[in-house]
């Protein structure tokens, strides 16, 4: 019995050592980027020779961050707004009604979340190029809607299922039309679900590299794609100004992640597939 307790303790200890090791390394790679972005010169020492803010200014002008940020904000908010407008009613219909082809429709909504963006992104980009939409901000928004709409549907459906249908029936009995039923009964009750879905789509869209990369032109790059190109062309620019941009990207993402984590469970960021 004592032997069992000892192995259990050793096992638990080992688990936390592995977790600690992983977190220390992730923290290390993030801290390396942050430290380098403030570094004057950093060669062969633990920390840079000195610290400066100049790289943020040069990154801002070199990478035209003002226009990149405007594009990012436009894309992200368009994707959030459209995916909520399309996804929430679909989630409502799926939660409340049974109809033909419902299983096929559910599969249709799950597939874009399971197939990696790189796989369907290339045919999608081909179609968008044929339609002369690729390279424009409209094309980037359309591409990003592909995983966003199904994501909203899957996140919001359980929230709709929790609402007692009798509340809607009661509102109907008292003469509420569809419009009033929707805005005075459903939307207030669904607010937590809509908020969660919106924030998760927002965070995922800021970080969505593949689809934006495949469909963006020079004037429609979001922050993460601009970051890729600057890392790709490392050597042309100072490493520190690339990292200054990386820190700006990180700050944008993490602020929204922190806000999102107040309202959602972290596991919701990952697709959950029911058997």
């Amino acid at each position: 019995m004592r032997d069992g307790a000892l192995t259990a303790k050793l096992w638990a200890g080992l688990i936390w050592v592995v977790i600690g090791f992983f977190i220390v390394n992730v923290f290390g790679l993030i801290a390396a980027v942050v430290v380098n972005s403030f570094a004057t010169r950093w060669l062969g020492t633990w920390l840079p020779a000195g610290f400066t803010l100049q790289w943020y200014g040069s990154a801002w002008s070199e990478f035209q961050l003002d226009s990149v940020l405007i594009v990012t904000v436009e894309v992200v908010f368009a994707v959030v707004a459209i995916s909520l407008l399309v996804g929430v009613p679909a989630a409502y219909a799926l939660a409340r009604r049974d109809f033909r082809f419902k299983r096929a429709i559910l599969l249709l909504f799950v597939l874009p979340l399971l197939v990696p963006p790189m796989t369907y992104g290339i045919p999608l980009a081909t179609v968008l190029y044929r339609l002369h939409l690729a390279g424009t901000i409209v094309g980037v928004i359309l591409a990003n809607l592909v995983p966003a709409v199904p994501f909203v549907v899957l996140v919001v459906t359980p929230f709709v299922e929790q609402i007692d249908p009798r509340l809607e029936a009661a509102a109907r009995v008292f003469g509420a039309g569809t419009f009033r039923l929707f805005f005075h009964v459903l939307v207030p009750l669904l607010t937590p679900g809509i908020l969660a879905a919106g924030l998760l789509v927002l965070v995922r869209t800021i970080a969505m590299f593949e689809l934006t990369f495949l469909t963006a032109g020079p004037d429609s790059q979001t922050l993460v794609v601009a970051l890729y190109y600057s890392v790709f062309a490392a050597g042309i620019r100072a490493g520190q100004s690339v990292d200054a941009m990386a820190v700006i990207y990180m700050a944008t993402t993490l602020v929204w992640l922190l806000i999102a984590l107040r309202f959602v469970n972290p596991t919701q960021l990952v697709t959950r597939v029911k058997e």
């Binding site: 790679l29 993030i30 390396a32 965070v203 970080a207 590299f209 993460v224 890392v231 690339v242 960021l269």
Partner: peptide, 15 residues
């Protein structure tokens, strides 16, 4: 997961 593969790649290059 949130930061994404581009940032992880840049961080690992340094780290």
């Amino acid at each position: 997961i949130t930061l994404g593969t581009v940032l992880i790649a840049e961080g690992l290059l340094l780290y």
